[in-house]
Structure formats: structure tokens, C-alpha cells
Design a protein around this nucleic acid. Structure first.
Lengths: 148, 148
DNA sequence: GGGCTCTTTGAGACCGCGTATCATTTCCAC
DNA sequence: GTGGAAATGATACGCGGTCTCAAAGAGCCC
């Protein structure tokens, strides 16, 4: 599913990196291309693994480096959902984003969106003595597949 | 500050453990006593360390074991806030709980409460095809101490 | 209390995600 | 093309967390 949104993000990311003074490089490019095609968050090792099976293996260090740089520029979001491995996903320029349901039984991570939740967080952000940037919401429980 | 709430939680936890068929043991007791006195979440290694400085050092394995057992009985909440170390805090029987502001500059973790946020999550929980249990909300940003 | 069994404990080996190092390769401004 | 800086990747390392197993302690029957 090579959709337009993915291509947009990939292009956007390349641009922002160039602006930030980064040179081009094959490893980072491969990570960006893979991330752009994902619907939801992947762990660094999943990325490493998928690239390898695609025949575009890169060093582990390069994966982590690319993710760190992308996170620094807010092009990817880093999140931890209680599984001892950080996950990364593209941040779209539209500001649109989702949160995650985590099945504590099988570990599956599913995205969801909720406007009321976002609104509550926005309102809340203005009243704390804290310069709020990003936020993560994680709902733990049992997914419908495990419940049966 | 040996307050009543802390003592309540400690007692409650002991009771629930007994009900669940656990025997008494010094290490778990030490972990519970320490946790009961905390206002906010600690990492396992912080717990280990503090017990050691109190002269009540316990094996690392015992700390993790106790925390796991307590989490299983929902007596403590386990949360990860993007610092590569899980944190644990008491869950009070009242159902009252808070969420966390994380300073990405200094790493400080600060609790906050918000009723509107809780309400939004409750409403949302009923509409997803997922059996929602706990939830975590983490706001990232810069704390007032680092901002100046 | 004395024994018996089963749980709890803790020292240390081990595992795996993530980071640091550093020699090599690649990019790009000139 | 050439020089110098950035990017890459193999690998060693660090550290949070788990597993193992023998010793100590809890609970129970007598």
C-alpha cells in the first residue's frame, strides 16, 4: 500500500533533515522509507529485522542513530508501552495523531483516535506549570482476539 | 511522613497477598513498606538502592519478584515513561490515581490529576472493541525548573 | 518445641535492548 | 578529482531485568 500520505511524510522528512544540515546516506534513507510505509509503531529491532529481510540490511547502530535524529526533529514519535522496547512511528505534519491500546495478554498494539481526549489534554496542558510538548496515552487491557 | 493513607495501603496490600495465598517474607515486606511511603513512582533500582541505604538491603531478584506479584494483584501500577526503566507506584483502593509529567531535559517525573481527562478516557473505553483495564497518560515537555 | 514441606530469599550467571567506539566508506563543496 | 567532514556498520560494552539454584524461613501437624 504505497499511499500518498506515506510518500508525503518520506519527502517531508528528507527535506527537514536537509534543512537541519544532514547529508544524505543510504542507511537513514532505508529507515525512513520503511517507517513511511508503516501504519503504527515499530520497535528498533523490528525495523532492523525487516530491513534485513528486504535485503537492505543496515547496522544496528545506524537504525538507532536514524531514529534518534528523526525523533530530535519531531519527525518520529518514540513511545514505550510497557514491553521493554521503545517503539517509533512517523509524525505527520498535519498534527494528526493517534494513541494506543496494548493487549497485556498477547502484546498486540492497536491505534485509536479520540477528539475528546485530545481536547481534554489540550485544556489541561495550559493549566499545569510545565511546558508541555508531546503526550502519550496508553490503554492496557485485553484485545478482542484474546478475550474469546 | 508516615501518613494514614500509606499505612492503609500497606495493610491492604498485606491482606490481599495473604488472601492470594502468599506467605509472609521479609523482603517483600520491606518493598511494600518502602512503596507505601512514596508519593510517586520509583524504578526497581531506586527501590533496591533505597532499601540498601536504609540498612535493609534485599536481593535484586526479590525486589522484582515482589513488584511483579504486587502488579499482578493490581496493588501497584507499572509504568514506563520513556526513560528505559519501568516505574512502580502504589494503587490505592479508592481508585484515585494520577498521571505524569516528564521533563525531557532533566528526567524529573511529576504527578498531576485531571477529572476531565479521566472522564474522556472512561467514555472512550466503552466505545473501543477492547477490554480496557488500566491506562497511562504521559505528558512530555520541560519542567519549570529547567525552563528558566 | 521438633520435625516436615513448601515458599521465600538472594547471590550471581545470564539475556537482550540500547549505546559507544572507531576504522572504513560515502558525500559534497571546492 | 580531491580533501575533509559526515555517515556507516562491525563489534565491544553497559545496564535493566530475568533465571537458577541452594540456603533460610514460614506455616502446620504432632
Amino acid at each position: 500500500m504505497p499511499d500518498v500520505l506515506a510518500d508525503d511524510w518520506i519527502e517531508h522528512a528528507q527535506e527537514r533533515l536537509a534543512q537541519a544540515g544532514f547529508r544524505r546516506g543510504g542507511a537513514r534513507r532505508a529507515v525512513i522509507d520503511l517507517l513511511g510505509r508503516q501504519a503504527c509503531a515499530l520497535t528498533a529491532l523490528e525495523i532492523d529485522e525487516r530491513l534485513r529481510t528486504e535485503g537492505r540490511g543496515v547496522g544496528r547502530a545506524s537504525v538507532y542513530r536514524a531514529l534518534e535524529q528523526l525523533a530530535e526533529l519531531h519527525l518520529v514519535a518514540r513511545l514505550e508501552v510497557g514491553q521493554d522496547a521503545a517503539r517509533y512511528e512517523p509524525v505527520h505534519a498535519s498534527g494528526e495523531h493517534h494513541h494506543h491500546l496494548v493487549c497485556d495478554r498477547c502484546g498486540r498494539v492497536t491505534p485509536f483516535e479520540d477528539q475528546a481526549l485530545e481536547a481534554a489534554i489540550d485544556r489541561l496542558s495550559t493549566r499545569v506549570r510545565f511546558d508541555v510538548g508531546d503526550h502519550d496515552v496508553v490503554l492496557h487491557g485485553v484485545c478482542d482476539r484474546c478475550r474469546r
